Simulated scan of single mutants.
Amino acid sequence: MTSHDATAPLRPQTLAWVSRHLEAGERVVRTEPLHGGVTADVRRLTIAARDGGTRDLVLRSYVDPFYLRDAESALNREAAALTLLPGTGVPAPALVAADPTAAHCAYPSLLMTRLEGRTVLDDAGIPTRLPLLARHLVAVHALRPTERPPEYVALSTPDTAVIPQHADRAVWSAAADAIRTPRPPYQGRFLHRDFQPGNILFDSATALTPSARITGVIDWAGASWGPSDLDVAHCSTVLALLHGPTWGLRFPDAYESAGGTLAPTRAQRRYWQVRDALAASEEVGIISRVWREAGRSELTERAVGERLHAYVVALMGAVG
């Protein structure tokens, strides 16, 4: 998590850069931190016009030294994705401007439109939201950009997994061995790389009802080219930690029911599922903190760790 004070005023050079990309007579009148992000400082900017009307933009800036090293690549990926998405049917913000190298801003930054809606982390309504998530992920994977984004990168390794306290170490050892095997062959797709409930906006009025509607897919900084299984596995892991292992296990079936294509064998699918689950083990503390700050006070680090262990056990118990 960044230690930057997101409530501090915009740096003068950043404000000047934003102002250059506004309509004539518009000005920034308010900034508000948007919570839930991990790698970047995200702010809602209220823009006032001469006629008294207002609109909102969103500013993403990389300020933490740990994440600055990847800021240029991440912002270039997001800018390219937001340029691709208009007219595709995938609801996403529109790009206003990007400064990936901080040539004009205090920090590497991207300015985009703000979408209506809110993220929904509640357990209530998840049976309705699951197929919606699946259908939108299928739509993402159906995109065929003229220029492919960079190949996906998996930073975690079998040896970097953090075994939860009181977990069955034999199961985790077997899981680590499962991803030491050669990577399964795959047909490349356009990937979001962080498609999960925290990056999905729902219509606020219907979010917990059978008529729930997705209004936006956000945070495209990881846009990549790779196997659809990787995105599906990531969303499955987050669903397992947020709502319980059963929901993580159900998501691949929902994805296929929505028309998506996964690896042909259970063993190949499990490779990607286990890889993402072990990667999540390195961030259980961060993940649980973000969710508690969003109102899920029961999701302590221990509780999330226990769910992760149960999910890994379930994956390893699947018939190979």
Rank of each mutant, 00 (worst) to 15 (best):
M1C: 09
H4N: 10
D5H: 11
D5I: 06
D5T: 08
T7L: 10
A8M: 08
Q13N: 15
T14C: 08
W17R: 03
W17K: 02
S19Q: 13
G25P: 07
R27P: 02
R27H: 14
A48D: 10
A49F: 01
D51W: 08
G52I: 06
D56K: 09
D56G: 06
D56S: 15
L57P: 02
L57K: 01
S61M: 09
F66N: 08
L68P: 03
L68C: 09
A71M: 04
E72T: 15
A74P: 00
N76H: 13
R77E: 08
R77D: 10
E78K: 06
L82V: 07
T88Y: 09
P91S: 10
P91M: 10
A94R: 15
A98N: 03
P100F: 06
A102Y: 05
A103K: 12
A103D: 14
H104W: 07
A106F: 00
A106D: 14
Y107A: 15
L110S: 03
L115N: 08
L115V: 10
G117A: 09
G117F: 05
G117S: 10
L121W: 01
D123L: 13
I126K: 05
P127D: 15
L130A: 03
P131Q: 04
P131D: 04
L132C: 10
H136D: 12
V138L: 09
V138I: 09
A139R: 14
H141S: 09
P145Q: 12
P145S: 11
P145D: 12
E147I: 14
E147W: 06
D159Q: 14
A161Q: 11
I163H: 01
I163P: 00
I163R: 02
H166Q: 14
A167I: 07
A170M: 03
A174M: 11
A178Y: 08
I179Q: 02
P184I: 08
P185A: 15
L191A: 07
L191P: 03
H192G: 03
F195M: 09
G198A: 10
T206V: 05
A207H: 05
T209P: 07
P210N: 11
I218Y: 06
G222L: 11
G222C: 05
W225M: 14
G226D: 08
S228N: 02
S228E: 09
L230C: 07
A233R: 02
S236R: 00
S236M: 05
T237A: 15
T237W: 06
L239R: 03
A240T: 00
L242M: 13
L249V: 11
L249Y: 03
L249C: 09
R250N: 08
P252Y: 01
Y255P: 05
E256H: 10
G259Y: 07
T261E: 13
L262A: 09
A263T: 03
R266A: 15
R266L: 15
R269H: 05
D276T: 12
D276G: 01
L278E: 04
E282H: 06
E283G: 12
G285P: 06
V290S: 01
V290N: 00
E293Q: 14
S297G: 01
S297L: 12
E298P: 00
L299G: 07
E301H: 03
R302D: 12
V304R: 00
E306F: 07
H309R: 07
V312K: 01
V312Y: 01
V313A: 14
V313T: 15
G317V: 00
A318E: 15
V319Y: 08
V319L: 13
